[in-house]
Design a protein around this nucleic acid. Structure first.
Length: 103
DNA sequence: CGCGTGACGTCTC
DNA sequence: CGAGACGCCACGC
């Protein structure tokens, strides 16, 4: 397991329910604010047995990944709402209140 | 070591 | 405001 991927999984696993983090944000935590793409790539290869709350990982817009990846945008929205994530009328997450604030 | 790739981010048109 | 292009980084081959 590459160190970078491991770090990504660790961080994602630490995202509390009701909060979301952006790929760029996670990348910044790893010390590479430009590695947002790599973070997303790491998620794409995230072992399901880790049960990472990947639905809590969104892009800067508060938008989820392409529908097919999560099995449906609506599904993710439902899961996030169930955790307390607030969606705006335009379908975007209210990052102002839901963005994860690490120490 | 070089090339291709990807669930991103930011700029330009 | 929407779509497209480029840049970024790490991984696999």
């Amino acid at each position: 397991m590459s160190s970078f991927f491991k770090e990504v999984y660790e961080i994602v696993a630490q995202i509390p329910a009701g909060k979301v983090a952006s790929y760029g944000q996670i990348a910044a935590m790893l010390g590479n604010p430009r590695a947002a793409r790599t973070v997303g790539w790491a998620m794409s290869g995230a072992p399901s047995h880790l049960r990472l709350p990947c639905h809590r990982v969104v892009n800067k817009e508060g938008r989820l990944s392409p529908d097919p990846v999560f099995g449906g945008y609506e599904v993710q929205r439902a899961d996030l709402e169930a955790e307390g994530i607030v969606f705006r009328t335009d379908g975007r997450i209210d990052m102002r209140k839901c963005r994860w604030h690490p120490d």
